[in-house]
Design a protein around this nucleic acid. Structure first.
Length: 135
DNA sequence: GCCAACGTTGGC
DNA sequence: GCCAACGTTGGC
């Protein structure tokens, strides 16, 4: 079991939209590092769902239900997509500001590599964020 | 809306 | 193969 964090701009595809759809394909990744992270995902891995640009917070968790396959939105098998379903919505969104204040989370890939849209999360970081989401 | 960070492209 | 120029992302 691995943990990830995936970013989406709410104006493009929000958490609410994911919940409404029940399932979606995570496509459109055009960055090699992010692509490699997508490829490293396994079924049942959990991804924290982060709203970038607006919200600036992790709002819930999603589960990987299909491993990387060629991105159907582009005619180039360099790029891949995965399928995810919503798992649980956070009672309290965990904001970026909060993450920056938390000593345990200082080394998160989210902070180190701000521009990467798919980043790995350690189990320690995951547990910490989960705890913050309940406060 | 601005700007910093950083990945990618292309000329040499 | 290096590095400058450029484009994109995302926080503020």
């Amino acid at each position: 079991m691995k943990y990830w964090l995936i970013k989406s701009e709410p104006s493009v595809y929000s958490w609410d939209q994911l919940v409404a759809d029940g399932r979606t394909l995570w496509d459109g990744v055009r960055n090699y590092q992010a692509r490699n992270n997508l490829k490293a995902m396994s079924v049942d891995d959990i991804a924290l769902y982060y709203h970038s640009n607006e919200g600036l917070a992790i709002v819930g968790t999603a589960k990987v239900v299909r491993e990387a396959y060629p991105d159907p939105t582009i005619d180039d098998d360099t790029w891949v997509a995965v399928d995810i379903v919503p798992l649980s919505a956070f009672p309290e969104p965990v904001t970026l500001a909060k993450i920056k204040q938390e000593p345990t989370l200082q080394s998160m890939a989210l902070l180190k590599q701000g521009r990467l849209s798919v980043v790995p999360v350690t189990s320690e970081e995951y547990e910490c964020i989960l705890a913050l989401s309940k406060s």
